[in-house]
Design a protein around this nucleic acid. Structure first.
Lengths: 195, 195
DNA sequence: GTCTATATCGAGATAGAC
DNA sequence: GTCTATCTCGATATAGAC
């Protein structure tokens, strides 16, 4: 539990997080992570007993990362409508990575579902965190019918757009469809909220 | 080029196709395929020089399979609107597999994008085939503005729904959102087509 | 805590008998 | 054409020196 070991543990998680996103979980080896951090493969096992264990740590880090990010957004924007715009624009802000590697949450869930990995139930909690936050923003805007359903539609629509943009590596499609989604939010979801 | 060898080649492709869908491409070994077909690993290499080569064959088979399927649909339904309904309902007809393994096209593209595989450009042709067919149906229904764009939105929305349903293994979400999508088709896309 | 060395396994791929 | 036997490599994981 020394501070040096803890710091290294964090560096391993950060490197693994990035590599899992860029290359996928199964496709990323201990060597890849060890090289990225600059340690030996053997040292790795002092901090994590298995590859699954680092996946757990990465998912955990991502969840708290998302929670921190959403708290920042809450501080940055008082208007819930602007928060929702900022959510929708997220893929545009990360458009390079989105086109190269897809959705960090969705692509991991897709991989874990494919390999029948037990951690799928923890991975999709990342979606749940976004969902809970979306529900709150919609409630604040006076949307009180089908809020949970609408929040899931948000997530599904963004994910669909991002996944297609990734498959075709098409930045312009991403831009165009995110714009369309904003229109949907204004015209369909928040039709009766003119605050 | 003997008929027996050709038949076995087809059986290998069929088995690989199914396993790639269920387990993913990288996660499926030659042993898996050989076991499924009931041949030895060595025999495998008489028919395919490498694992990539069978991926090519599988994608090729899937594309012609999709084309055949869409031709069947064209024969089965004269009304293009009913064809579009049938397209939208596809995930419901395959709901068990969808929840277990996701979208056969989308999940493969996501994996190939992640591993930077050269075959991604061929895999997303599966989407293109669907897209071309959707454009034709929309044209037949008198939609003449943004047809290509709308057809891609179709694909992206279905893919988003399917990917979320797969991540949560949630059949009821799938049903509910497909229903919603049908409403979107009627109210937004075909609003002015009352044939 | 971090390292090197090594065990073990399963993968893709090849050689050659039949 | 199909098989068995084998090669090679890279992966996860362990043992033990420092």
């Amino acid at each position: 539990m020394g501070s040096k070991g803890e710091a290294l543990r964090q560096r391993i998680i950060t490197a693994a997080d990035e590599l899992f996103y860029q290359q996928g979980y199964e496709n990323t080896s201990f060597s890849d992570i060890a090289d990225a951090v600059g340690i030996s493969r053997g040292n790795f096992y002092y901090h994590f007993k298995s590859k699954d264990e680092i996946l757990i740590a990465v998912i955990d880090a991502r969840i708290t990362g998302i929670e921190l990010m959403l708290n920042e957004w809450n501080k940055k924007f008082i208007d819930p409508r602007k928060r929702l715009y900022y959510y929708i624009d997220m893929p545009l802000r990360n458009q390079e990575n989105i086109c190269l590697h897809g959705c960090p949450v969705g692509s991991l869930c897709t991989e874990l579902a494919k390999t029948n990995h037990a951690m799928l139930d923890d991975a999709n909690k990342m979606f749940i965190v976004f969902h809970g936050w979306l529900v709150i923003q919609l409630n604040l805007l006076g949307v009180n019918k089908n809020v949970k359903k609408i929040a899931m539609q948000f997530i599904a629509r963004v994910l669909g757009i991002v996944t297609v943009a990734n498959a075709f590596k098409d930045k312009s499609f991403l831009k165009q469809e995110i714009k369309q989604l904003k229109k949907w939010l204004d015209d369909e979801v928040l039709e009766f909220c003119h605050q």
